[in-house]
Amino acid sequence: MKFAVISFPGSNCDYDMYYAIKDILKEPVEMVSCDTESLDGFDAVLIPGGFSYGDYLRSGAIAKFAKVMPALIKFANLGKPVLGVCNGFQILTEVGLLPGSLQNNRDMQFISEYEPLIVQNNKTIFTNEYEKAESIMIPIAHGEGNYYCNETELESLKQNHQIIFTYENNPNGSVSNIAGITNKNGNVMGMMPHPERAVEKILGSEDGVRLFTSILKSFKGGILVE
């Protein structure tokens, strides 16, 4: 299974993502510039955290117009897995691949902590290796991770089981404690916590590993969306 990590000017978790695939999942992975115009040949695309284009204007707002975006939208519309973490989540909402948006944390502080998350939906290509309602430890590191969507969108997220991870102790003010969601089709996921930073004991948690093994398992089982 071949992974692409899209690197933007200002991405700073791109190599964490790269090594999580290369050294832990042990699958082929390529660092791809955001100026690339094709994602042909890849089976999954990972959008890493950081501060793309300095987060000028709004997080993810400028990245929306990167050259790779038409290819990314095409890739997502084919039903292939796309995972956006942190700034990657913010970018996916700006592009419109995921509903809602991320705004400043409730208490206006950048938070860098391990946070317990609850797996709300384990029937996705990203979470099938977790137990439902399992509590996992994944670090967050963001100043703008306060998820917001209006009530109609929230209702629709709930109805379609698109809320995948929630915070146990909502650190940032997110609506309904939301930490991660998918699109309706279930093949695009965005989350603020960093699974790629929780893949080795020495990092403090290995709970992120199963997110990547879930993607691999779904791919090998020929399941795009359960």
């Binding site: 204007l57 709004r58 707002a61 117009f65 948006s101 705004q103 969507c149």
Partner: peptide, 8 residues
């Protein structure tokens, strides 16, 4: 298209 995020 760019300056405002219609969600917020």
């Amino acid at each position: 298209s760019l300056l405002a995020n219609p969600n917020m």
